[in-house]
Computed example of a mutant assay.
Amino acid sequence: MSLVDTVGDILWGTRAYDYGSRIFKSAVGAYTRIEPSETITVGDVSATFRPSSFVEWSNVHTRIWHERRVLEHLLADVRTDDVFFDIGANIGIYSCLVGRLLDGGAVVPFEPYPPNVRRLRVNLAANGLSPTIIERPLAATAGDATLSVHDTVGPGAQHATLGRGYHTSPIEARLDVESVTGDALVADGEIPGPTIVKIDVQGTEDDVLSGLERALGSDACRRVYVETHDNLDDIARRLGTMGFAVETIPVDRPGKDPTVVGHAKRGGHNATAS
Results as ranks from 00 to 15, higher is better:
4 V>P: 01
10 I>H: 13
11 L>A: 13
13 G>L: 07
13 G>F: 05
15 R>W: 07
15 R>F: 06
18 D>E: 15
18 D>M: 11
21 S>F: 12
22 R>F: 06
24 F>M: 09
30 A>E: 12
33 R>H: 11
34 I>G: 04
36 P>S: 08
45 V>T: 14
45 V>P: 01
47 A>N: 04
47 A>L: 05
49 F>C: 06
51 P>H: 02
55 V>L: 11
65 W>Y: 11
65 W>N: 10
65 W>H: 13
65 W>M: 10
67 E>V: 09
71 L>C: 05
72 E>D: 14
77 D>C: 04
80 T>G: 12
80 T>N: 14
84 F>R: 08
88 G>N: 07
95 S>H: 10
98 V>C: 06
101 L>G: 08
104 G>H: 15
104 G>V: 12
108 V>G: 06
110 F>C: 09
112 P>G: 09
112 P>T: 06
113 Y>T: 07
114 P>H: 10
123 N>K: 11
124 L>H: 05
125 A>S: 14
134 I>L: 03
134 I>S: 00
136 R>S: 07
138 L>T: 04
139 A>K: 00
142 A>K: 07
143 G>I: 09
144 D>Y: 09
146 T>D: 10
146 T>W: 07
148 S>L: 02
151 D>C: 08
152 T>H: 12
153 V>L: 08
155 P>T: 06
157 A>T: 03
168 T>R: 15
170 P>N: 11
177 V>E: 02
179 S>L: 10
181 T>R: 00
183 D>I: 10
186 V>R: 02
189 G>S: 10
192 P>T: 07
198 K>N: 05
203 G>F: 03
204 T>E: 04
205 E>P: 03
206 D>L: 13
208 V>Y: 00
214 R>H: 14
220 A>T: 01
222 R>C: 02
225 Y>F: 07
228 T>W: 00
230 D>K: 02
232 L>K: 07
232 L>F: 03
234 D>A: 12
244 F>A: 00
246 V>Q: 03
248 T>V: 07
250 P>G: 08
261 V>P: 00
261 V>I: 12
262 G>A: 06
263 H>K: 08
266 R>A: 03
269 H>N: 05
271 A>P: 01
273 A>I: 04
